[in-house]
Design a protein around this nucleic acid. Structure first.
Length: 110
DNA sequence: TAGCTGACGAAAA
DNA sequence: TTTTTCGCCAGCT
């Protein structure tokens, strides 16, 4: 297995509610590896060939920036997908990120 | 084979 | 507050 960690990442990302977003660090922390935030991003890179598809557009960095948009089919796809869910994106950054933020550790622990 | 890089983040200075 | 360094795992040169 190239990593159960990766599959766990995909699973968590798929749990992100529509219209909400989270960041790499929170996912990594939820999985027990706070310092593996990079691996989450790396996992996203492979998410394109996963089934069911992983809503990677709902995952942004801790600043709410669409840092991974370049890895989508088109640089604007990520923003379009987010806008389609009611999330406003301004200059590659999620507006009201703080409000839309979805923390797996918090949301899934309730 | 060894070293560098990458959709990141936290701590240290 | 801003800049720098380290850690994580896999893939590439």
């Amino acid at each position: 297995m190239m990593g159960d960690f990766y599959e766990m990442v995909y699973e968590v990302v798929r749990l992100i509610p529509r219209g909400r977003v989270t960041n790499y660090g929170s996912i990594a922390r939820y999985l027990g590896s706070p310092q593996s935030s990079r691996l989450v991003g790396w996992a996203m890179n492979q998410s394109h060939s996963k089934t069911p598809p992983v809503p990677a557009h709902r995952v942004v960095n801790r600043n709410g920036e669409l840092s991974g948009r370049q890895h989508f089919a088109t640089p604007v796809l990520m923003e379009e997908l987010l806008k389609a869910e009611g999330i406003r994106v301004k200059r590659n950054t999620v507006v009201n990120f703080k409000m839309l933020f979805w923390d797996p550790e918090k949301e899934l622990s309730l």
